[in-house]
């Protein structure tokens, strides 16, 4: 259904941070919203941040093993986007296992999702980070092209 090249189109070299400065959950969300806005098609950063914080009120998107996948739909964005960000020290994210989050994938989509891409994408990323080898590789990624190869390799193996 989704091969790696289809999947990689949601990533953008501008939407990448090898080291977040933030030390708090809110700070991390804000920093990632700033990153999304570096790409095209973000209408409103405040609206996007509000949606993401509200989603956290429903339950943390920190899924454990040092991974958080904040996500949601908002009128603030025109297309589906993925941010990859990392924190070597880790950021408290109210995760399921109470451990700090190191790896972040932020996924945002417009409410009207013509090709129905958002949920499969979310599922694919959630699946990718289940593998310890993928998480280790993501922790070692140095730049955008490194991320690209880890992501495509992880998907290509399937």
């Amino acid at each position: 259904m989704t091969d790696s090249s289809q999947f990689l189109k949601y990533f953008d070299p501008r939407l990448f941070s090898a080291e977040l400065r933030a030390k708090t959950k809110d700070g991390a969300l804000k920093e990632m919203v700033e990153l999304v806005a570096k790409g095209d098609g973000v209408r409103d950063k405040a609206l996007l941040f509000e949606m993401l914080s509200r989603r956290e009120q429903l339950g943390s998107t920190g899924i454990g093993n040092g991974v958080a996948i904040p996500h949601g739909r908002s009128l603030a964005v025109v297309d589906t986007k993925v941010v990859f960000a990392r924190s070597t020290k880790g950021i408290p994210f109210e995760s399921i296992d109470d451990q700090p989050a190191h790896l972040f994938f932020l996924i945002v989509a417009p409410p009207q999702d013509k090709r129905n891409e958002y949920l499969p994408l979310l599922g694919k990323i959630a699946e990718l980070v289940q593998e310890k080898s993928a998480r280790d590789a993501l922790m070692a990624v140095e730049d955008w092209s490194g991320l690209r190869s880890v992501v495509s390799e992880a998907l290509g193996e399937k």
């Binding site: 009120q57 429903l58 399921i96 959630a126 699946e127």
Partner: peptide, 16 residues
């Protein structure tokens, strides 16, 4: 259910 299967917590909607 889909979100929970992906590993996300879906709590109550009171705050929302």
């Amino acid at each position: 259910r889909e979100e929970e299967e992906m590993g996300f917590r879906m709590g109550t909607i009171e705050k929302l």
